Amino acid sequence: MRKMIGKAGHVAALATALFLASCSSGSNTPPAKRHDFTIGWSIYAGWMPWPYAQQAGIVKKWADKYGIKIDVVQVNDYVESVNQYNAGKFDGVAVTNMDALTIPAAGGKDTSAIIVGDYSDGNDGVLLKGADKLAAIKGRQVYLVELSVSHYLLARALDTVGMKPSDVRTVNTSDADIVGAFGSPDVTAAVAWNPQLSVMKALPNTHQVFSSADIPGEILDLMVVDTKTLNANPDLGKALAGIWYETVALLKRQDAQGQAARAAMAKLAGTDTATFERQLATTHLYDTPKAAVAATTAPALVTTMTRVRDFSFQRGLFKGAASADAVGIAFPGKRTLGDAQHVTLRFDDRYMALAADGKL
């Protein structure tokens, strides 16, 4: 995921990430305490609280509380936003769990996921023409953005019906082209995300046979921050948590203020309120810090990240790694997946927990 227009270019992005990491990770000098920070985001329903918070003054409110300044910056291309974070142009970025692992973490940039914001609960789906059962996908060409969460969703779907990746042939298709490609009579299978997914589902004789709602909690949307920067500036984590939960609480309200906030977010996303509301309906927001902490500390997250890292390794996204264990992933409670001496992705629930306890 994670913008309404694209998450492609993964292989090129990873190559860039590895190069940038090799250039930037040589210094062991700890970051100094700082005043100004920049956070990157791209358009996706679950991330629209960030630009709205800046527009509404919520970012400034929380930054002022901690005596810092935070600039929330839009990047039109999702992968480019992650690359800019990787290059040190951003201190944090809105990213999926898979991309946090395969771009900065696999490239050697120590990254902390401080907010687990939501999971896709139907925003991503597998479509077939002329069949309403997933088993009918066998032998078909499947159009998707290869090496993206669409590819991961396909692999998980195939698992559920006892198929292997070799039972289908994927055709790499950009998110910008997938709607047009699926409109061709010769194309009978595809994996896509919203809003393209909703357009494609409306085509005649088309059926959604699997979606991210069938693997709840696996395609996660995060706010990640450079770990060294965070450790030197914990007030950044506190401010970001305060911003997020205040804004999401407003987003969920059903009164006039909530409606106005959702309308403003829709406008910032370049869509209408009704479309934005439909996308929110297939986005499971962890709208309270307590719910987010529970999700982050649950054993299910380790299971999910095991699946994600195994898929990523098998597809060659851990360049030069001898095994999936090469990239260490840390979880609350001192749990570690993979190489505990080379942890570069950390699920850090401290700031969500402070919000849950009312201690921000």
Rank of each mutant, 00 (worst) to 15 (best):
K359Q: 12
D186K: 15
T344K: 11
L251V: 12
H207V: 08
F313R: 06
L153V: 02
H284S: 09
G338A: 02
L268E: 13
G258C: 11
V75A: 11
G316W: 05
I58C: 06
L236C: 10
I58H: 08
A135F: 03
A136W: 02
A113H: 03
D118P: 04
D71P: 03
D71Q: 12
L18W: 10
W244M: 14
A136G: 04
R253E: 13
L18Y: 13
S81K: 11
K33T: 14
F318G: 01
R2D: 12
I103T: 13
M200H: 01
G26K: 14
A189G: 02
N172L: 05
L134A: 05
N28Q: 14
A155C: 13
A113S: 15
I178T: 10
A326D: 13
A136D: 15
I103D: 10
N233G: 10
T160Q: 08
T38L: 08
G180L: 14
H10Q: 13
M352G: 10
L222A: 05
T273D: 14
A100P: 04
T188N: 13
T160E: 03
A261Y: 10
G258H: 11
S42Q: 04
V79S: 14
G117E: 14
D339L: 08
V302M: 14
A176T: 12
F19C: 11
A176R: 14
H342Q: 09
S150Y: 08
S112W: 01
L250S: 11
V11C: 02
M352D: 12
K129V: 07
M4R: 13
L285T: 09
D186T: 15
L230G: 00
A176W: 11
R278C: 02
V79H: 09
L158C: 03
R346F: 00
G320T: 07
V126L: 08
S120G: 07
G92C: 09
L280R: 09
L268P: 07
L158M: 04
L301K: 10
S42P: 08
L268I: 13
V224N: 01
I215H: 03
I219E: 00
A249T: 11
G333Q: 08
Y143E: 04
D255M: 04
A340F: 03
T344G: 03
D177L: 14
K69A: 11
I39Y: 02
A87Y: 08
A181Y: 13
T288M: 11
Q84M: 15
A291M: 09
A298M: 09
Q257Y: 04
T38P: 03
V302Y: 08
R278P: 00
Y143K: 05
I68C: 08
G358L: 01
I39H: 04
Q196W: 04
S212P: 07
Q74G: 00
A135D: 15
E146P: 00
L197S: 03
G125N: 03
A192S: 14
G125D: 05
H207G: 03
A300T: 15
K138F: 01
R315Y: 07
P195Y: 05
K65N: 06
A8P: 00
G320F: 08
G139F: 07
L154T: 05
D77W: 06
V209E: 07
D124W: 01
M352N: 09
A213G: 01
L354C: 07
D339N: 15
T160F: 07
T271Q: 11
D235E: 15
A13F: 05
W244T: 15
V248E: 09
Y85S: 02
